[in-house]
Amino acid sequence: MSIRGTSDPVTGRSARILIAKPGLDGHDRGVKLIIRALWEAGMEVIYTGMRVTPEAIALAAAQEDVDAVGVSNHSGAHGPLFRELIERLEAEGIGRDDVVLFCGGAIPPEDVDELRSIGYRGVFPPGTSLESIVSFLEEALR
């Protein structure tokens, strides 16, 4: 397995990424691809599974001491769910400078800027390459 600049130079610890699917939809093709791509890029990935609440995701982020949190939704419920996650993370003492937040799924173009403005540094709609998501994280976690 190659480690490409995502491990801490002092401790050698790999970047820890939490991947989660809030909402009730079962479209996990995207998250499964991302999990595999991040793993192949040398990152440690923790996947919550489907149908998890923003509260449970925030709790997992705190307990697992992750460097980044990625969420995916394809049911059109991304707006309220992704907003709530930010509140829940703050309630766990995790601010927007503490973890890299990114998201993907069936996100209409006009929602992309809003999600960026509330704290999602990466917003990845359908058609995004895995390579660009890996590069984004490598850059953001450097």
Binding site: G23, S75, G76, A77, L81
Partner: peptide, 8 residues
């Protein structure tokens, strides 16, 4: 169901 009612 909150947030998902009538969505898809």
């Amino acid at each position: 169901a909150a947030g998902e009612v009538g969505k898809v």
